[in-house]
Amino acid sequence: MSRIQTTFATLKQQGKTALVPYITAGDPHPNHTVNLMHTLVKFGADMIELGVPFSDPMADGPVIQRASERALKHKVGLTAVLQMVKDFRAVDQKTPIILMGYANPIEAIGAKAFADRAKAADVDGVITVDYPPEECADYVQELRSRDIDPIFLLSPTTEPSRVDLIVKQASGFVYYVSLKGVTGAANLDINEVSGRVADIRKKTNLPVGVGFGIRDAATAKATAAIADAVVVGSRIVTTIESSTDENLLSNVAALMTELKTAVDAAKQ
């Protein structure tokens, strides 16, 4: 069983929802990233979504765009990100790491070479924002043959017939984007999300994660009640952005504690 599957299975037994924080690798500085990852785990992360910086993050709002730009100033690209995962694994062999990024850095290496290197770094899952399933059958095959989960997004506008297509390609979990727009855009409508998640569950046994627009304890709690994983991105990146070198880890720890309490309270 993959780390992602194991994590979901354990949480299910405990009646809990996974808390999945997102950070952009290399933000605010590459020296911080591995420490930040350990802090996220220490304060409640069940998995980590690690953003691969990209020059043209089309699906991201201004908060994560700025994080990407900060990381790119320090020349943090896919190769550096994979090294960070390796460094993290030297200490933590348990927490699943999911890379989230865009197609072109993978295209630059090639699908097969990327899958090899991701495996060597012990990556568990990959979300490639601009690879819809129709365009990446070979890539998905390369990942799955190495037990790396290709994780796909579903959106409020995804037609039911496409949900069928996507869940067939996906493994690990499926990621429901809870609003129309870019990351960090607005507050989600929990009733609408609830209905959509229920529809998705009719089509797949894969766990369903929900993200985009979860910005505080209240929305995290409401989302945790209906999802198997709650992904929090822009809110964490905002905290990183407004922190100094001195209070970065403590600020992130405080936010994580708040979110973890909220998520754990959801199903009790």
Binding site: D56, N104, E107, D130
Partner: peptide
């Protein structure tokens, strides 16, 4: 090199990390 940007695959000016 060939890569993906703005919704299509084409020739793209990029660095070794695939950044434009």
């Amino acid at each position: 090199p060939v890569g993906v940007l703005h919704g299509n695959r084409t020739y793209l000016m990029q660095d070794n990390d695939g950044n434009i």
